[in-house]
Computed example of a mutant assay.
Amino acid sequence: MFVFNSVMMSLLSVYSLLTIAEQYASAGLLSQISNPVIRIAVSFMLLDLTLYFWHKANHMFNFLWMFHQVHHSDPSFNVSTAFRLHLVELLLTAGLKALYIIVFGVDKAVVIISEAVITVFVIFHHMDVSVPGEKWLGRIIIVPYLHKAHHSTLREEHDHNYGAVFSIWDHLFKTIIEIRPAEIGLRYVKTQDFMALFLLGFTRFQSSRH
């Protein structure tokens, strides 16, 4: 799934986003900010906020959860979990990012930097490790113990901690939870091969989501 997604996203998503950024960088809302450092910082914060709401929407709306459940179906929690994503979810996310680039006028360099930083953080917070000072760091960024709670089998636990990089959005919008989940994954998902997971994305969600 990692290889398949990487090839598809390299061919479709990254190239498309860079092409869109090249065309719309000077036309969006952020083009009014002359200082490049401030423009990059504001752009990244707004992107992270956008991804927070997008992630939350993937849990709230049944159509989006159908695809997002593939990510949550991993019965373990490790770096490979970060790449267990359904192709349709990846394409929808790319579409959201494209809209974001057009509205705010994000240039190619910022797109590359943002994608790199977010990818590193996504890998980081799927690592099943304890981080020194994680309680303090967790007030600012998403650390593994916070995201592990997001992968709990219990819906009342996994419908929290939506942040991609910053945890400040979860604190601000009251979606933060600090627990040690007893079990990871989705109990109703039994098969784990590539085709089964691909088809799972087109399967109506289970009401309990356990």
Rank of each mutant, 00 (worst) to 15 (best):
M8W: 08
T93S: 15
L96N: 01
F53G: 00
G28H: 04
L12R: 00
T19S: 12
T50W: 07
V143S: 06
V37H: 09
H126S: 06
I20A: 10
I140N: 07
I38T: 11
V70Q: 06
M45V: 15
F44E: 02
V103S: 10
V37G: 00
V7L: 13
L30R: 02
L64G: 09
S10P: 01
L11N: 03
V37W: 12
L87N: 04
F124R: 05
G138R: 04
V37M: 12
V131K: 07
V129F: 11
N58G: 14
L12W: 11
T50K: 07
V129Y: 07
A82E: 03
Q32Y: 15
R84S: 12
I112D: 02
M9G: 08
T119M: 13
L29F: 14
S13N: 11
M66Y: 02
A82T: 10
H125K: 10
S10C: 11
H59Y: 00
V7T: 08
P144D: 04
L12H: 00
V122L: 11
Y24I: 03
M60S: 13
E22M: 04
T81V: 10
H86L: 07
G95V: 08
F53A: 03
Q23H: 11
H126F: 05
L17A: 12
G28E: 04
A41S: 12
I141Y: 02
H126V: 04
F77A: 01
T93K: 11
K108G: 00
V110I: 14
Y52L: 03
F121W: 14
I33D: 04
G95F: 09
F53H: 10
L30W: 00
I33E: 07
A21T: 09
L17Y: 00
L11D: 03
M60A: 13
L17F: 02
F44I: 12
N58C: 13
M66C: 14
T50C: 13
F61K: 05
L49Q: 05
T50V: 10
T93G: 15
P36T: 06
P132S: 08
F77D: 06
S31H: 12
H125T: 09
A21F: 05
V106E: 01
V117T: 07
H71K: 08
K97Y: 01
V37K: 03
I142L: 06
V79W: 09
D107A: 02
K108M: 11
A57T: 04
L47M: 11
H59P: 01
